[in-house]
Design a binder for these strands. Structure first.
Lengths: 224, 224
DNA sequence: GCAGAGCTATTGTTTTTACAACAAAAGAGG
DNA sequence: CCTCTTTTGTTGTAAAAACAATAGCTCTGC
């Protein structure tokens, strides 16, 4: 476990928790570890869980297969990331997704009951861990809400403007860059890539935006 | 405050917390109350908050106005409901929505720092409150994810099938009812109501579903 | 059972999108 | 610098959606 100390200290979940406390803490939380090979299913659709996953090592993907056999990738998860936490706190609900190990990986599972439960030893790191977890869940919530706002728009143009103006706002400048390439942006906005590309050109030719690759700028800052 | 006891006991946030503990608890949490008239802004877009809202009395709406002046209603909130909790835990982020009082209303504000913080009196209701809050945030998370799955589909038909088959699954039957009328369903799925209506007829004439008003049935259960 | 209000279905038209195929540009590796 | 691969842009066509107008249905209160 020693080798994973940087993963803990760099993670949002364990942020602010002393490395000295970790062993006692993991013991108190009833933490268990699992190892997985490439292509292993870490979590299978339909299972019910009461532990949240924390990636110690390796890389995994949250996916869902539809009835046509198409696989949608919902998220890439890396060391320090938490996954399936919402379902761990709703342990009566089956998980609607798969988590697949992309590389060799190692996962730490933390019992949600222990996280919130009162520890007889009054471990004061409980407080910090709960705070971190609330922070993580609040953040995911905000991201999901933001995405819904973007993809709720009816036309590709509106979706683009909603997303891009949000990015401009978040980065505090009418010039900004985005963390997606075209295909990823199209996937995020749930539109066709080529249709989106041509809508981008239109926006540019109409003098609304300028862009090159993943760098964008609004020529007239959109109102807020 | 006495008159609000049923609101507390029926709420998800205070579920399982004894009424006898409430006064001490609210004191410990630094709770404060505000009163609002019809049309008052309870929370204004752009503000930053570190307290979550809990409706004691009245009715409110979470809304957002776009640059064209169109108002989108994101949620209706009622006594016992919690709102803005995600932003209260991300107190550095401005709230992107308005909360408007629809009727006379009274709101209880709870300091997030106090909720997670260690109480010198070791109030054991902290544990329960945190557990409830995690449950609420996990639940919202799941609802948001589900909605994203539904509206991510490219065509109206696919959106309908995604939503309806989810409902059938959740209600455990190929016959089920939905909590929306047509306009509300169209708003939820982000499509035009009339286009959606005609897609529904098509699905019916093709023998895939049968429906009357808000009662639906799959004739051949969709695969899961 | 009737009138009126509100909700739902249907249809035709216009606009927008997806899809497909290809051209152009950018990036990686020698 | 050149080649190969990946990403991005462009265009035409077919499919789907939005929009608008109208008819039909359902529910409520009388």
């Amino acid at each position: 476990m020693k080798g994973y100390l940087p993963v803990f200290s760099d993670s949002l979940l364990f942020r602010g928790i002393s490395q000295d406390d970790l062993p006692r803490m993991l013991n108190c939380l009833n933490a268990r570890r699992t190892r997985h090979s490439r292509q292993d299913l870490i979590l299978r659709e339909g299972e019910k869980i009461s532990e949240l996953g924390f990636v110690l090592f390796g890389q995994a993907q949250v996916t869902k297969d539809d009835y046509m056999g198409n696989r949608t990738i919902f998220a890439d998860i890396l060391p320090g990331d938490v996954f399936a936490e919402a379902y761990a706190f709703r342990k009566e609900l089956p998980v609607p997704i798969n988590v697949i190990s992309i590389t060799e990986s190692e996962i730490l599972w933390l019992d949600c009951g222990r996280i919130t439960g009162i520890c007889s030893k009054v471990c004061n790191f409980h407080t910090k861990l709960v705070e971190n977890l609330l922070f993580i869940m609040a953040s995911k919530n905000i991201l999901l809400n933001r995405k819904i706002e973007h993809i709720s728009k009816r036309t590709t143009r509106e979706k683009l403007l909603a997303y891009l103006s949000d990015q401009a706002f978040l980065q505090g400048s009418r010039a900004f860059s985005i963390p997606f390439n075209r295909q990823e942006l199209a996937d995020y906005l749930c539109v066709d890539r080529s249709a989106m590309s041509s809508e981008l050109s239109k926006l540019q030719s109409e003098g609304i935006i300028r862009y090159k690759l993943n760098h964008f700028a609004f020529l007239n800052m959109p109102p807020r």
